Computed example of a mutant assay.
Amino acid sequence: MGDNSEPRIGESAHWSARPLGAFNINWGEADFALAAHDAETLEAGLKLALVLDGDLTVRALDGAPTRLKGASLCLFFGRESWRLEHQYAAGRTLRYVTLNLGADLLEQEALALGTSLAGASGAGPVSAFISAPPLSIAAIGEQILSCPMRGAARDLYLGGKGLELTAMALNHFIRGEARAASAALGAAELRRVVQAREMMDAAPGQAPSLPELARSAGLNVRKLTSGFRALYGMSVAEYLRERRMVEAWRSLSSGACDVTRAAEDAGYALPHFSAAFLRRFGVLPSAVRNRSAI
């Protein structure tokens, strides 16, 4: 990153296991007081980038630049060594998770994967897939950023979450979910559906009613509900419920609030919240809160 960007970089981790070979995860936050630029040279293989928040522009090789504003999911498949450039906007915090998988993964355990990716995007040296992330994928990114575990258990947890994130992203792009959603919606409607999601993301605990949300986004309820399902694979209500659960996980794991406050913010009575949280994450909210205090 540029010398004048003054970033605050989060943690990073590396995890590997047979038969995957080279596999590593990096995550964190970076604050940019001024615009900044950097570039990286990558070997053949996969690079996955989940941007949970931020404003940056990326360009692979000599291709056209693509702006990533807000939540974005990017998958790059390089058939040879290649260069990826990043331009970061000033005054914006970047929250991200990235994963790199070496070419030996494609050669040994997932040769069909490389064929599917190549067939979906042509035969150039780098294939790029970019879309809004389904909430199920964004939720995994949040869990990686707020991992409550320590020691060896932490490494195993992050490795498992990294593999889950990669599998879900590949499935998202290879099955054509992102392309199908774009085809089903016009450009203007697509942007309005994204705006509706951004409104809910800004304050999930105080989200407007469905008619109010549709009106604010410039859509009728039918267009919003059908478009939202096409783009994110779930209803508006399901998205909001999941978003509130993810926020509860973040608040509890960071120690920002207690279980009672998390339940209130998520719109649940305490006993129902504990049961719903356990179903979603496999652990009680009190356990996540207690770990953050260690």
Rank of each mutant, 00 (worst) to 15 (best):
R79F: 02
A39I: 07
L185I: 05
L105C: 08
E80C: 06
A207K: 04
R279H: 05
A138Q: 11
V288H: 01
A214G: 09
A49D: 06
H14S: 14
F281W: 06
F77P: 01
G54D: 00
A266K: 09
P285A: 03
C74E: 07
P208E: 06
A188Y: 09
L270D: 05
V236N: 08
F228D: 05
T225S: 15
L50M: 01
Y239P: 03
M234N: 04
R291G: 00
D155S: 09
P125V: 06
A293C: 04
L84S: 00
F23E: 00
E6Q: 13
A103T: 08
I25W: 03
A275E: 15
H272F: 12
L75Y: 03
S136K: 11
S146E: 12
A153D: 13
R192A: 12
G255A: 03
L46N: 05
L61G: 10
A214W: 05
D62C: 05
P148L: 04
Y239Q: 03
G10L: 10
V58Q: 09
T57N: 10
A89I: 02
H272E: 14
G28F: 08
A262T: 04
A60F: 07
A64L: 13
S12G: 10
A139M: 10
L48I: 01
G2D: 15
V193L: 07
S5C: 14
A132H: 13
D265H: 08
L105A: 13
A138N: 02
K161L: 15
C257L: 09
A112D: 12
W249A: 00
L42T: 09
G78K: 00
L213C: 10
L252A: 01
L231T: 11
R79D: 02
G102P: 03
A269G: 06
A275F: 07
A33Q: 09
V58I: 15
S251C: 07
W249M: 01
L163C: 03
F77V: 04
R150S: 08
G151D: 12
S127V: 03
A167Y: 09
G227H: 05
S121F: 08
G282H: 01
L278M: 09
S235R: 10
G267Q: 02
W15M: 11
V236G: 06
S127W: 02
L68N: 02
F32Y: 14
P65G: 11
H86N: 12
T66K: 14
A22M: 08
G205K: 04
V259C: 01
N4K: 14
R244W: 08
A39F: 11
G176A: 08
E164M: 12
A184N: 02
A120S: 11
G119N: 13
Q87F: 14
V246D: 10
V126C: 05
A275N: 11
L278W: 07
S121L: 13
L185E: 06
L219P: 01
A17G: 07
R243H: 06
G160F: 05
A33K: 12
T93Q: 14
N220W: 04
T115C: 07
A110T: 05
A89P: 03
G21S: 02
L34N: 14
P134F: 07
L185V: 04
P125A: 13
